[in-house]
């Protein structure tokens, strides 16, 4: 049966079964959810690395080189890549082209690459990206790279999912005011200026370093980050048994340069990724980031489930009538909401 997922085959490393599992998750089917529930206990092992940055900055090429490097350094370490590209807001279709830059990785059974479309989500990932990462984690991939859509300033969902976030910039990104704005540069654990052979590269490095000198953005902990997004419940904070001494505490965000098409700067970037993973664990931050991620996921599920419940319970004719009144300016959107919430259920 096409819709059945063989959990044991997934856990045993069957790539076809895994691919089907990922499809079921992406389509939000009942069997996908059940399988996720069944494998949840096995998750929490992988190092999740987010790669984000503007379109054309070189995210895919960088991921290609990094994964090639990690596989050569340790052939026993299985690595997965989830590459997200945008869906058309008009047709819902998508052109997923990240594999074009990852051809070096084909033929290696220790690598699994999956492309996915955002399907209407706006934060740089799809709604099910996190669940897909969980599936790959359960299937034994020790590193999971997640490449976001080409991001502008505020597509920062990746920071809620990844342990380590790499922001890739290309030379010519703008001046120091651009660099000081809130958003994407703030979320970086590692900053990479790619295409370092281009004339403006030194400028970009200088600008980013100057930005960092004004105040390191990542000194706040994951638990603190949670507070900046209202959750549907009071967040549970995990305390770590590791005593936070100030020496180990602050991670200095490095600004690295790469020419990813030629492999320049890849080893340094790879080493920083590993270093960051170790630093997170030493500071007890790893657990906190996991806790933040899982609570975010629960929050999203709650909202989604209440929405679906409301949709099931309210009559479409009534809703349509209220909307028409709003469009005729009889009710404001907020008044329409009040009516919908009070009003006539099926």
């Amino acid at each position: 049966m096409k819709n059945q997922i063989d959990v044991n085959a997934v856990l045993a490393g069957d790539r076809r079964a895994l691919a089907r599992f990922l499809t079921a998750i992406e389509n939000e089917t009942a069997s996908g959810r059940q399988t996720l529930d069944a494998v949840f206990k096995r998750t929490g092992q992988a190092h999740i690395i987010g790669v984000t940055g503007s379109p054309g900055a070189g995210k895919s090429s960088l991921v290609n080189q990094l994964v090639k490097y990690f596989r050569q350094a340790d052939p026993s370490k299985k690595i997965a890549i989830i590459a997200v590209d945008p869906s058309s807001p008009f047709t819902g279709g998508a052109l997923l082209g990240d594999r074009v830059r990852m051809r070096d990785l084909s033929g290696d059974e220790g690598i699994f690459i999956r492309s996915m479309a955002t399907r209407g989500a706006l934060g740089g990932l799809a709604r099910t990206t996190s669940a897909m990462a969980e599936a790959l984690d359960a299937a034994g991939f020790e590193m999971i790279f997640i490449e976001t859509v080409g991001a502008g300033q505020s597509e920062v969902d990746i920071v809620r999912l990844a342990h380590t976030t790499i922001v890739v910039e290309a030379p010519g990104m703008g001046d120091d005011i651009q660099a000081s704005k809130a958003g994407i540069l703030e979320i970086a654990d590692i900053l990479v200026v790619n295409k370092a052979d281009q004339p403006m590269a030194e400028n970009a490095v200088r600008t980013l370093k100057a930005m960092l000198e004004l105040g390191h953005p990542i000194v706040q902990s994951a638990a603190e980050r949670l507070h900046h997004r209202a959750l549907a419940f009071e967040a549970v904070e995990v305390t770590s048994d590791i005593h936070q001494n100030s020496e180990a505490e602050s991670w200095q965000v490095p600004v690295l340069t790469t020419i990813s098409t030629e492999g320049v700067g890849i080893q340094e970037t790879a080493e920083k990724i590993l270093e960051h993973g170790v630093a997170l664990k030493q500071r007890g931050e790893w657990k906190k980031r996991e806790a933040a991620r899982l609570q975010e996921a629960l929050h999203d599920l709650l909202i989604q489930t209440f929405l679906e419940k409301w949709q099931r319970e309210s009559s479409s004719d009534f809703v349509q009538a209220v909307i028409r009144d709003m469009l005729n300016r009889v009710h404001s959107p907020h008044q329409a909401l009040q009516i919908l919430i009070k009003g006539q259920n099926k």
Binding site: S87, S88, T91, G92, G93, A94, L95, L96, G97, R99, V100, R103, S115, A117
Partner: peptide, 16 residues
């Protein structure tokens, strides 16, 4: 073709 299928609402993986 990749572009046309995208515009027809499909998810097209282009490999190069």
């Amino acid at each position: 073709i990749a572009r046309a299928l995208r515009d027809a609402g499909m998810e097209v993986i282009y490999t190069g």
